[in-house]
């Protein structure tokens, strides 16, 4: 993309969108949002970066192969399901703990790990498709 304005703004936009996607992921349990939507926002962020600065830059920026990210996501989601087996309750039962971090009670759960897995799978799988299509696409 030739536009100098777009090229200048893109990194900031991408950063903000990534941050926003994580915000959406985390608040998803109580407000509109969640792993799926968050993941889609993150992919859009990467797409913008890719259109502005090319695939190579994006690949360098995310460091891992997108499929590896997706794989890690599926693994995390599966583990989140398996944890409950160790607590002797059926597969995929949500488990919650409320540790206190710096005096603030932080609710953590296997459900959240699961949603993070969903987020990573969506980010990885879709960005991998988009990036491979962009690569050498003649565009």
């Amino acid at each position: 993309m030739k536009s100098i304005i777009f090229r200048t703004v893109a990194p900031f936009l991408t950063g903000l969108m990534m941050l926003f996607s994580i915000f959406v992921l985390l608040r998803g349990h109580n407000e509109p949002g969640g792993g799926f939507i968050g993941g889609l926002i993150a992919v859009s962020a990467l797409a913008i970066y890719g259109i502005a600065h090319g695939v190579v830059t994006v690949r360098r920026a995310i460091y891992f192969h997108p499929m590896a990210i997706a794989g890690a996501g599926l693994f995390a989601a599966t583990v989140a399901g398996l944890v409950s087996l160790f607590a002797r309750v059926p597969f995929m039962t949500g488990l919650w703990i409320y540790p206190s971090v710096l005096g603030v009670e932080v609710p953590l759960s296997t459900v959240m790990l699961f949603d993070t897995g969903v987020y990573l799978v969506v980010v990885g799988a879709i960005s991998s498709i988009a990036l491979s299509l962009e690569e050498g696409g003649g565009a």
């Binding site: 349990h29 407000e31 969640g34 997706a70 989601a77 459900v111 699961f114 799978v121 879709i126």
Partner: peptide, 24 residues
């Protein structure tokens, strides 16, 4: 509080697990 999200990740989590496997 978000029913949609709770259905996706908790009530019908196993479905979602299958779905993200399909996405992958």
């Amino acid at each position: 509080a978000n029913v949609v999200n709770v259905i996706i990740v908790d009530f019908r989590g196993t479905d979602t697990l299958g779905e993200i496997a399909v996405v992958l």
